[in-house]
Design a protein around this nucleic acid. Structure first.
Lengths: 153, 153
DNA sequence: ACCTATAGTGGGTGTGGACCCATTATTTCT
DNA sequence: AGAAATAATGGGTCCACACCCACTATAGGT
């Protein structure tokens, strides 16, 4: 994650490409957030799953997998961790006992709020060079690009 | 790289975070470009090294490592590949015979132009929802964010 | 001459992410 | 009832990336 490595000037052939800028700033954003979550022993998927439960209520694990476009078997592992932290609970769906309904606990919701605060802190760091108006503008442009993404729009 | 996985709606708690949008669109950008380069048996660093040589002329390998913030031993491997493709040539620096001067061949420069075309194709795909004015606006905002990045100016 | 520092190289490690398969329990279809 | 589909789980694979160390060759300082 390239800590402090004497950043000579990069080739304009690269920095002139929006693709490159997106890729690099995206990686930085991801890295900063991941680092903060790592301090709590978490990864990005933990936050994503919590967010899905908070926004849309209880899910079967398979529903989580579909919504977040993750392999079901990986969802199992993420939910394992969240359950160990008492942030979510698993209950067999009585209507279809194959399904495991996952719901966030109050502690889980509180935790999510903290994680979101972390994300906003990263955001503040990242966007310092922009005025508030420009920040919302950037977010807006990004959201529109994101929504029509080839993979997962 | 999540090909076509039934993209249900994502949690607004996530999509409302600029950090998240940056991370995701950045990853998509990187993924699309990497996929195109992979078809030619290349990775992003190959393009980066070529770009550095094209923009700033011959480098000692260590200079490349510093400029691009890559480990010197990894630069060796990238230059190995580029040399095998006859896109760069290595020559011992007669003034300091420890140094290996790397310079791009004409073939290498032509190749770079093609790679840049690939990058612009990705860019076109990615930014379809935006008007030309908005695209330059996005690039502009991103460049400013990128230039003040915590890691790698 | 001697010692230290630097450039390049090869080989290796650790991590995270995406992916995949086999197994078990349960449901649905016929 | 029996067959086929589905949910969850545990186990692993594969790959890219960043990183690090040991070694050789050369240069520079004293």
């Amino acid at each position: 994650m390239n800590p402090e490595p004497a950043p000579d000037t990069l080739p304009p052939s690269l920095t002139g490409l929006t693709t490159y800028l997106l890729s690099r700033t995206g990686k930085a954003a991801r890295g900063l957030l991941a680092a903060r979550l790592a301090r709590r022993g978490l990864r990005l998927w933990h936050m994503a799953v919590l967010a899905a439960l908070a926004d849309f209520g209880p899910h079967a694990q398979r529903e989580l997998a579909v919504r977040l476009s993750v392999d079901p078997s990986d969802i199992t592992k993420v939910v394992d961790d969240l359950a160990a932290a008492t942030w979510v609970e698993r209950t067999r769906d009585p209507a279809d006992r194959r399904r495991v309904r996952v719901h966030a606990t109050p502690a889980g919701l509180t935790a999510l709020t903290e994680l979101q605060a972390e994300a906003e802190a990263v955001q503040a760091t990242l966007l310092t060079p922009l005025t508030p108006a420009e920040r919302t503008q950037l977010t807006d442009l990004l959201r529109r690009v994101f929504e029509t993404l080839p993979t997962g729009g």
